[in-house]
Design a binder for these strands. Structure first.
Lengths: 359, 359
DNA sequence: TTGTAGGCGTTATCAT
DNA sequence: ATGATAACGCCTACAA
């Protein structure tokens, strides 16, 4: 990429920048309060404040106030090995599913004086390793992981090392780590029931990666729902996507069409896979919902403005994030507590991509 | 929010976690190499390696390798006041415009061994202040700012204090800070020309906030383009949105309709404002593009799947981010250099939301 | 070329 | 109740 144009846009430039005065340190405060740095430290820390006389505490706090003292988190981290920081490991920030989750996480963390360090792995194990190393070297107190695969040696090792973690959306097989997920089984069951109620009997499933717990859970739920509703249980109606994105969704839809099996409805593993179907429909002149009904999963932003608006399973993204953050903070503060896992309720969001089966 | 269900999902639990062995320090490496820590430090740092004998350097580096030594960035920061980290200040991560920019930024930073600390301000000056304070206390070496307003005392003060900054998308009035923006004027001019070519003569403009340089630039460009094409220059065809989002876009469209002025096309300040128009069209039974053509700005993700697909001005998001990161690294490495600003080329992306004016 | 010593800002453990 | 001291891990004058 080359810049199109380069320009110094302002005609004038200040001669020299004023330097910021160096931030005041604990010693400055102590000095101003006529007291030793150690005492100032105690006075400023609520947990140790009771160790100093009320009078000194007051003096120190006022000095800190007037000097605008802000503790240096780096020095504090070095000394305490803590950081009031957690790492957030995402496969891909450009997936619109994640920003609302991030917001939920940040909201909870912020209320507790924590902040989140966000990294992207691009689904690349090498990058994941590097990013997590980097987070750990920065003393994050825990990790919120959205990249778990069923078989995930790295995460397994971290857990063995006692690294505090919470998984969101997906889990690692047989790993006793707190997890926040949407209720995948119920979501898929709602989707299939909705389609069955519309008269569809040959329903296809574009499954998410079976290397992820979510992909497996949704596929299983799909098979169960098909049986529960006594619909056509035809294996050729199920295609697996290697990744949770539009491209693979489109590929799976092409594969499905190529097989020649009839179907009048599709349950997609998630919304992006459903969008991939839209692409193929556009290519082939297939009309949704007239020819085929589609249901997605997640209710990511802007689906209501698609053509047609996508029927999907609504997941409380913000709550997923908030709950994960809360669980991680619990773990950090009470490491011995038995890990819980949380399943969040979902709901079917009916829009224009589903319609009665054509007679 | 209450979790829907709480469950301990795994039946078994490891008895006790193995603790991670403490990471090895510079002293460990030095000891292993039979050398003093200072020497080890010199050997490990490429800039000072020439100060030690080739032989020692080799020994130290091998020791570091076998011990898996990773320098502790916190200790390093405390000593050097640097952090190989930059802050990224966004108004709202859930705006799909930003993730691709973030990706561009991270790509460049990563290649230089830097990483980005992302914060959201929610367009709240208080939060912005707090977030930036937090970034600075963590010794970020510079800031990439996407929240600039024309009048922005905080950013002005930071600049006076010599804080390294780069602005993306928007700038502060009369502040000589490097900026990366799309070519707003050309973009708007392309949009208006496109509509004029389609036969539209009464074109409305839903302007972005005039408190932002981008809002102002696009409005100005709109007026100029209208005159250049000798179209109806009617002030009642321009409405300002207070924020760059759907809600305010919808409000502005309602205001415009309420005024009763005729128009057959709309140039929206950005894509989200255009989406707000879609909402109002749906409410009122107005058909796009049959009744009204709409053009957005930015080409954020998924616009091609809207109903109708939104014609918009395409901006190289990834490049915006990459260029900003590059400029910030330049500033950090060569603080005395005169600040540049970069204008990136845009292109019109014609989709289904624009059509010839009805006769 | 290498080692010594001091300090970045904070907190924890002594002793007073 | 407070002060002195040391240490977190690293870097860098300075001395040898």
């Amino acid at each position: 990429m080359k810049p199109d144009q380069t320009a110094a846009l302002q005609p004038t430039r200040e001669v020299r920048r004023a330097s910021a005065q160096p931030p005041s340190t604990l010693r400055d405060v102590a000095e101003a309060a006529g007291v030793h740095a150690a005492t100032a430290s105690r006075a400023l820390n609520p947990k140790t404040r009771r160790l100093v006389s009320a009078e000194t505490a007051r003096r120190v706090m006022k000095a800190a106030e007037t000097l605008g003292y802000q503790p240096n988190p780096i020095a504090r981290s070095l000394k305490t090995s803590r950081s009031r920081t957690v790492g957030l490991v995402l496969p891909d920030l450009t997936n619109p599913l994640f920003p609302p989750i991030v917001r939920g996480i940040e909201e909870v963390l912020e209320a507790s004086g924590y902040s989140a360090w966000i990294v992207n792995t691009d689904n690349d194990p090498k990058r994941e390793q590097a990013q997590i190393d980097s987070l750990r070297s920065r003393q994050v107190e825990g990790l919120i992981i959205a990249t778990a695969r069923l078989d995930h040696p790295l995460l397994r090792k971290l857990h063995e090392q006692g690294v505090m973690m919470v998984f969101v959306n997906r889990r690692v097989e047989n790993l006793d780590v707190p997890t926040v997920t949407a209720d995948d089984a119920t979501g898929i069951s709602l989707a299939v029931k909705h389609l069955a109620d519309l008269g569809h009997t040959r329903i296809a499933h574009l499954a998410g990666p079976q290397s992820t717990s979510t992909g497996v859970a949704r596929s299983r739920a799909f098979r169960h729902a098909i049986r529960d509703h006594a619909l056509e249980d035809d294996p050729s109606l199920v295609v697996e996507c290697a990744r949770w994105n539009e491209e693979d969704g489109a590929g799976a839809m092409r594969e499905l069409l190529g097989r020649g099996s009839d179907f009048t409805a599709v349950v997609a593993g998630n919304d992006l896979i459903a969008l991939g179907c839209y692409d193929v429909f556009a290519e082939r002149g297939i009309s949704c919902p007239a020819d085929v009904s589609v249901v997605g999963f997640n209710d990511m932003p802007f689906l209501d403005k698609l053509s047609p608006p996508l029927t999907t399973v609504g997941v409380p993204h913000h709550d997923v994030g908030a709950e994960a953050a809360r669980m991680l903070l619990d773990c950090v503060e009470e490491p011995e507590r038995h890990p819980r896992s949380v399943l969040l309720a979902v709901s079917l969001v009916v829009r224009g991509s589903t319609a009665p089966r054509r007679p």
